[in-house]
Structure formats: structure tokens, C-alpha cells
Simulated assay, not measured.
Amino acid sequence: MASVNPGHPSGIAESAGAARRPRADPDAPTGRRIAAIIAERLGHRWKEILLDENAAPGLGQHPWDARPPIVLDTTAAADLGYQAVGDYATIVADTIDQLCLIGRRGFG
């Protein structure tokens, strides 16, 4: 099983027929884990303060907070020989670096 990540630039895979297909990450990181992966890549450290049941409605919500989680069965793809190029942390590293470079240089 894998989590879908359509917003990630590598979330689109090229097939032999040049059609674009959504792809799924081989692992399914939580929003908290995604934040930790990005922070680690950027060398950022913080103290987490977790929300409890008394938190204001909507506080802490994010796009990856689907309940139940969106999970894809990638068994058929694996049966056809598909192999993921890496887990979420590996795949997103280049995108983080590119976004930081754009932030420093600008879009032009």
C-alpha cells in the first residue's frame, strides 16, 4: 500500500506511451512526519507542542490530514514490475532543494 501525493512534482510519472499517471509514495508519512522530513533537510529544529482534544476546531488541519487516509493498492503495479525510486524523504529532497534555490534566486 502507498499514499498518494498528487501535489508533489514527482507525483506524476512518465509511462512508455507518454501518458502521465499519478504515482504513490511507497511509504505513507503523516503530516507530522512530512514536517520533520522537510525540517531535517533544511537543518531546522523546533520544539513540538502537540494538540489535544481541547484545541480550537480546524487548528492543525493540513492537506495530508485525510481521515481515513487515502491509500492506494499498488499490488498490480508491482506485479507489472514497478519499483519505487525511493521513499518520501528520498524523493522530496530534490524538490525541497529546488524550492529553496528558487526562493533565493527568484523565478526569473
Rank of each mutant, 00 (worst) to 15 (best):
P68T: 07
D94C: 01
Q83H: 12
R23W: 05
R105A: 11
L99I: 07
E14S: 13
D97F: 06
G43Y: 03
D79A: 15
L72C: 08
A39K: 13
G81I: 02
A77N: 06
S10C: 09
P22I: 05
I34G: 03
D73H: 08
A24P: 02
F107P: 00
R33N: 01
A66W: 12
V4P: 03
I91E: 07
R45C: 00
C100G: 04
G86P: 04
T95D: 12
A36F: 02
L72G: 03
L59I: 13
R45D: 08
I96Y: 01
G86A: 03
W46D: 11
E40L: 03
A56I: 10
G103I: 02
I12E: 06
D65G: 02
G58R: 10
I12V: 11
G106S: 07
V85C: 09
T74N: 10
A89D: 08
Y88A: 09
D97S: 08
S10I: 00
R105Y: 06
D73R: 04
W46R: 12
Y88T: 14
P68D: 01
D27A: 02
R21K: 10
R32C: 04
P29C: 05
P6G: 04
P9S: 03
S3A: 14
P6T: 05
D97R: 14
R45M: 00
L99A: 14
I70K: 13
A93S: 12
N5Y: 09
C100M: 14
G31C: 09
A39E: 15
A35S: 11
A24S: 15
A56Y: 06
P68M: 05
R32Q: 13
F107K: 13
A18R: 14
A76E: 11
D94A: 15
Q83I: 07
L72P: 01
A16T: 05
H62K: 09
V85D: 15
A16M: 09
D25A: 15
V92W: 00
I102F: 11
R32K: 13
